[in-house]
């Protein structure tokens, strides 16, 4: 075991941790995976510190002839992909029990990272379904549900388009919600017997920061206070961006005499 091997192991562990963290895993799971993978490769002691914005890893191979190595990975742009978390989680368990080489493991992780579970069209339809269901739950009727379907689909299309360009997440939430509100208000003006409130709530539900809230609680529970706070702040700011998007559109609509 030379230091070149140690470096490869370190890169492998960082990559696995990065995929999990980027796709919305809890801190405890990320750190556990990294430590498990390193110790499976014969590294004596591993220390990990991870937050939603970066992972810091130090490994010590445990004999005096080799030096300890450290790697810092800065992360930007969090998404949610449960499929990748599940795949990496299962892979890391398999990796510890069988003798997959480090190079093979790296190739498998690259494949997982590049994987796309659902096509954009299917996700847009799913967003329309979400908007429709929550519109009816919050008191919408049949015509409201149809408008919510259109507004949800359209705003998610915009969201998918925007996420191709690394746009600021506040602006992202703001624009998506504003677009949904404009469509809801316009169509409600045309179609009789509709109210815009359940429609906007339904489309709002697509972007609501449920993942950030849940993960922040789970981080607090396992004692990762820093990450818990970071994710709580993420949830609050995202909620503020959604409210601002819908609020400004409704304000302008009222001011220009759209009549609510």
């Amino acid at each position: 075991m030379d230091s070149n091997y140690n470096k490869k192991v370190l890169m492998l562990a960082v990559y696995a941790g990065e995929i999990m963290m980027k796709n919305g895993a809890e801190i405890y799971r990320v750190e556990d995976t990294i430590v498990r993978m390193c110790s499976a490769c014969g590294i004596k002691s591993t220390e990990v510190f991870s937050t939603p914005t970066g992972i810091f890893i130090s490994i010590d191979p445990g004999d005096d002839s080799q030096e300890a190595q450290t790697y810092i990975k800065r992360m930007r742009g969090l998404t949610t992909d449960m499929g990748k978390i599940s795949l990496v989680n299962n892979f890391s368990r398999r990796f510890t029990s069988d003798d997959t080489s480090v190079e093979e493991a790296m190739a498998i992780l690259r494949k997982i990272d590049g994987k796309r579970t659902y096509h954009t069209q299917i996700r847009i339809m799913a967003a329309a379904l979400v908007a429709m269901c929550f519109c009816v739950i919050f008191g919408g009727g049949f015509p409201d549900a149809l408008i919510a379907c259109v507004a949800g689909g359209a705003s998610y299309t915009i969201s998918a388009y925007l996420s191709k360009y690394e746009i600021n997440y506040f602006i992202h939430g703001f624009l998506c919600c504003a677009a949904a509100s404009i469509i809801a208000l316009l169509l409600c003006g045309v179609v009789p017997n509709t109210s815009y409130q359940p429609i906007i709530i339904g489309t709002l539900m697509i972007y609501v920061p449920g993942v950030a809230i849940t993960n922040s609680i789970r981080d607090f529970l396992s004692g990762d206070m820093l990450s818990g706070l970071a994710r709580m702040a993420d949830a609050v700011i995202t909620a503020a961006s959604l409210a601002a998007g819908a609020g400004i559109v409704i304000q302008i609509w009222t001011m220009t005499g759209g009549g609510i």
Binding site: G24, A25, E26, R29, T80, M82, I85, S86, N89, F134, I137, F138, Q197, I200, I201, L204, M205, V208, P209, G210, V211, I213, T214, N215, R218, A239, L242, A243, A244, A246, G247, I250, Q251, T254
Partner: peptide, 28 residues
């Protein structure tokens, strides 16, 4: 399978999206 996969979608109907909207509407 990891519990997160079930918790995150399961919790979403409970997230107070409607209250955020009502608060914003009252603010307007």
């Amino acid at each position: 399978e990891a519990a997160t996969i079930f918790i995150i979608p399961g919790i979403l109907p409970l997230v107070p999206g409607a209250y955020i909207f009502y608060a914003m509407q009252a603010l307007v």
